[in-house]
């Protein structure tokens, strides 16, 4: 931190990334609409927008890492603010996924006459909840245990053990995603097969998407741990990833119980 600064807050430098991210989001939205309706150049604009957003994410977070790890701007007060900011973000994610689980239970608790008045709808062959769904749930919970192992290893100053623990966490996450892909591939129904297919793939698909985001987050933490960025006293990025990971593995229980199990028997 700069010696002349008489407070512990981080006053950020002007940055081009908010406006570049906004322009990327605008191009993505307009490009997406153009692509889904018969306009020319929609796919190009959509791809450009997505590339712009991904680029912005990369350089913005690179700047944050420089500010915290190299320039020391993330004082105890700043770390507290980051934690306070991450909690409502996770709460909003829980509410986002809850909406899809609610859509599923809304459709299944009183099935309409258009789908035969039963759940699962007539003609839908559902997946056996005792097979891959039952296997994938403990896989994700085990990776939750592995991330706790990594956390204690960081706190105990066991740097190598923490890297191993993160490798275990990420490996279990990849196995989960692999099995989920296999399940989707083998599923006898698709997203366009009745309200069952729509709610099933929307809920499990968005959960799976969050698993992938969490996996990328943990991979970054693993690399940073390997490079020695994370210390006993200062590892907010890892804590955020661990919270996010627990959110993802706890939320897995909802689709497992309500969609696969209750809704599939």
């Amino acid at each position: 931190m700069i010696e002349s600064q008489r407070h512990s807050y981080h006053l950020v430098d002007p940055s081009p990334w908010p406006i570049s991210g906004s322009l990327g989001a605008l191009a993505t939205t307009v490009g997406g609409v153009m692509y889904m309706h018969p306009f020319q150049g929609g796919a190009t604009l959509l791809s450009l927008g997505l590339i712009f957003i991904l680029y912005t994410m990369f350089v913005w977070w690179r700047d944050v890492l420089r500010e915290s790890t190299l320039e020391g701007h993330h004082t105890k007060v700043v770390q507290l603010g980051l934690r306070y900011g991450f909690i409502p973000f996770i709460v909003s994610e829980v509410m986002f996924l809850f909406a899809f689980f609610r859509a599923s239970s809304h459709s299944s608790l009183a099935p309409t006459v258009e789908i035969g008045g039963i759940w699962p709808p007539k003609g839908i062959w559902v997946l056996d909840p005792r097979e891959i769904p039952f296997l994938n749930t403990p896989i994700l919970l085990s990776s939750g245990a592995a991330v706790t192992w990594a956390h204690h290893a960081i706190l105990a100053g066991k740097e190598k053990r923490a890297v191993y623990a993160l490798v275990a966490t990420v490996s279990l996450a990849l196995v989960f995603t692999g099995f989920q892909g296999m399940e989707y591939y083998q599923a006898p129904f698709t997203i366009s097969d009745s309200i069952y297919g729509s709610t099933f793939f929307l809920a499990t698909g968005f959960h799976g998407f969050h698993v992938i985001i969490g996996t990328l987050f943990l991979i970054i933490c693993g690399i940073r741990q390997y490079l020695g960025h994370l210390t006993k006293e200062h590892h907010v990025g890892f804590e955020a990833a661990a919270w996010y990971w627990h959110f993802v593995d706890v939320v897995r229980l909802f689709p497992f119980v309500s969609i696969y199990w209750w809704g599939g028997i």
Binding site: L135, H152, A153, R161
Partner: peptide, 26 residues
Amino acid sequence: DAHETAKWEKITYLGIASCTILAFVV
């Protein structure tokens, strides 16, 4: 923390072992 690290390492191994067995069964 060292104690907790060892404990959670064991829990992780237990989880991986049981998931592997379950995977073979499924």
